[in-house]
Every structure is written in C-alpha cells, then in structure tokens.
C-alpha cells in the first residue's frame, strides 16, 4: 500500500523464499545461457514429471512439520497403498476414481495409526514413525514376499495426457497425470494451510502447543488430520509413481524419506514447528531439481549429483543459522 520500495525490499530480504528464488533465478539464467537443453518445454515437463512423486510427498510432510511433528514412515505407507491398489485393480478392473480413492483410504488409515500412537501414547513423532516405517515396510515385504507387480491395467498404464504434443523426434509430452497430481496437491495444501481455520490451527499448534491446548484447540483431532493428510499425499504419490514406473515394487520407495525431508527443509520449514510455506517447499524442490538437471546438462557425471545436493543442504542450513544468529544479536543491542 503506502510502503516504499525500500521497505518492501527490507521485508523481502527477511524471507527465506526470497533468497531461494534468487539462487534459482541465477541458476536458471546460467543454465539457459550455458546449455542447449535446459530452457526447453520438454525439459520443463520432464522435470515436473520426474519430481512429482517427491513433490507431492513434500507437500504432505510440510504440513506435518508445520504442526511441530515429523513423519518418516510415508514411504512405507506409499508402498502399501500402491501395492494393495494395483493388486485390486488387476483383480477387479477398477477405474481412475476408485484407484485413487483406495490408495488414499489406505494412506489415511496408516496415517491415523501414527497419529493415534503419537497423541495417545505420548511418544515422540520421530520414534513412532521410525517404528511404524519398520512395521509397515516389514509386513509389506513379508506378506508380498517382495514380489513386483509388472502388469498394470492397460488404462492405468496409458496414463492421462492433456494437451499432448509430439515433437519432431516423435517424443510426446504434455500435461500428464504426474504434473496434474502435483499441481492439484500443491493447490490443496496451500488452500488448507492459508485459507482454512484448520490450517491456521496447524500453524498455531506448531508455534506454541501449550497455548493451543489452553485456548481449547482439539489437539488430537489436529494430529489425526495432519498425519492422515500425510497419508493421503502418500497414497496419491504412490499411484503416480507406479504409473510412471509402469510397475509396483514393494522395496524401491523406502529409503527416499530423507530426500523428501531435505526438500522441505531446503524450502525453509523448521523442524521445531510452526514455520514453512508451500511456496518455500516448491522452491526448495525446484532448487534440487534444477541443480541436478543442470549438473547433468553441463556434463558433470550423474554420479556426483548427490554430492552437490548434500553440499547445497549444508550451505543452506548453515546460512540460515548464521543469519538467525545475526538477527538475535541485533535484538540484544536494541
């Protein structure tokens, strides 16, 4: 409104998202100039498609972190949701609506187990989710014998494409199932967190749990909602991953939980709760995606990509801590 440009800049400067966006902008400009393949529509769609799985899970984990908890069992949840849904789809020939409903149902139920253990038994969320990760995953592989499902229903295998476009090399791309799901889940998460009172309660809970209790928030219900939402995203993510991989493997998803955590944390969410935005998570994810993509495009062996990811995480969290410390020192003087 009557804010001067300098004020606006001061305000922006304090936002984590501003710095992330700046780094990404520099990266994008550099890669656009330095490489041929980066600034193409196809590369853009490919990146969105391949990072959709991580992104959808990141949206769910963001909500959990904001509430002051943590969940790392979601990869096992996704594996179970995927397996049950595709097993039943093969047997009974379901349709799009019912496979998503089923996967979401499984995810929500497993999320509720986490919430009940965390809230009712008062065990810290990290311990509960380490335990349930092992329980869910162990039981899944035990029951299935670790067998892959290679044949998926043909309608599922084909996937969904809008605005399909086939280029000169006969490679088709467009708005596919993965991208659509990613957009929908980010939108729903944003609406939940910013446009509903429950979303604000989640922020409040993460900011000051005791105060939330005193004010009469229903903490149990919030916990149920948060962990079930994580389960829901795991259900959705599991299906689009199965569609992309054209198979279901009970053992490939588990182990990716810390990658998702890294993306959310890069996006500025705090493990202490109460802090984090959908925009930040999108940017955190974008930074990871563009950096890994860019390294390959400028000819760095893909074997080294993980090293750079680690380096970026370490630099980012150190920079955040240092600037927080400077802010604290400033307060002391005044």
């Amino acid at each position: 409104m009557h804010e001067s440009r300098a004020d606006l800049f001061q305000r922006l400067k304090r936002r984590h998202e501003f710095w992330l966006a700046s780094v990404i902008a520099i990266l994008v400009i550099f890669l656009s100039v330095a490489t041929q393949g980066f600034l193409t529509l196809q590369n853009f769609f490919d990146l969105l498609t391949s990072y959709a799985f991580l992104g959808i899970l990141a949206a769910g984990l963001l909500v959990v972190l904001i509430s002051g908890g943590i969940d790392i069992s979601f990869t096992a949840t996704a594996s179970i949701a995927q397996y049950i849904t595709m097993l039943l789809a093969n047997k009974y020939g379901l349709d799009w609506f019912s496979v998503f409903a089923l996967a979401i149902l499984v995810g929500v139920l497993l999320g509720a187990i986490n919430a009940i253990l965390i809230d009712r038994l008062q065990i810290s969320s990290i311990i509960v989710s380490i335990a349930t990760l092992n329980i869910f995953y162990g039981l899944l592989v035990f029951v299935t014998g670790g067998k892959y499902i290679y044949s998926l229903p043909s309608w599922f295998g084909k996937g969904i494409y809008w605005f399909e476009y086939v280029d000169a090399d006969e490679i088709s791309y467009g708005l596919n199932l993965q991208i659509l799901a990613l957009l929908v889940m980010f939108t729903i998460t944003w609406l939940l967190l910013n446009r509903t009172n429950i979303g604000r309660q989640i922020y409040a809970l993460g900011g000051n749990r005791e105060a939330a209790q005193r004010l009469g928030f229903n903490v149990f219900r919030l916990n149920i909602l948060v962990y079930c939402y994580m389960g829901l995203t795991a259900g959705v993510a599991s299906l689009i991953q199965a569609q992309l991989a054209q198979s279901v493997a009970p053992t490939v998803l588990v182990g990716k939980e810390l990658d998702v955590l890294a993306a959310v944390v890069l996006g500025g969410a705090s493990l202490a709760g109460g802090v984090g935005t959908v925009l930040g998570t999108v940017l955190g994810l974008a930074l990871l995606a563009i950096m890994q993509n860019g390294l390959i495009l400028i000819g760095v062996s893909s074997y080294w990509s993980q090293f750079f990811v680690g380096l970026v995480i370490l630099l980012s969290v150190s920079a955040t801590a240092l600037s927080a410390r400077r802010k604290r020192k400033g307060n002391l003087v005044e």
């Binding site: 810390l258 890294a262 080294w304 993980q306 090293f307 380096l311 370490l314 410390r325």
Partner: peptide, 23 residues
C-alpha cells in the same frame, strides 16, 4: 559453532559423504 540443528547438519553431510563415495 554455527548452531545448526544436528538433524539438518547430518542430513547434509550424509548426502554429501555418500555423494563423494558414489562419485
């Protein structure tokens, strides 16, 4: 000395160290 939370620090070094090993 920098005051970063252990979980974030070691998440970073974990990825970096594994990256060196793979590289």
């Amino acid at each position: 000395y920098l005051g970063v939370s252990p979980i974030l620090t070691t998440l970073g070094t974990m990825t970096m160290v594994k990256g060196i090993a793979i590289g």
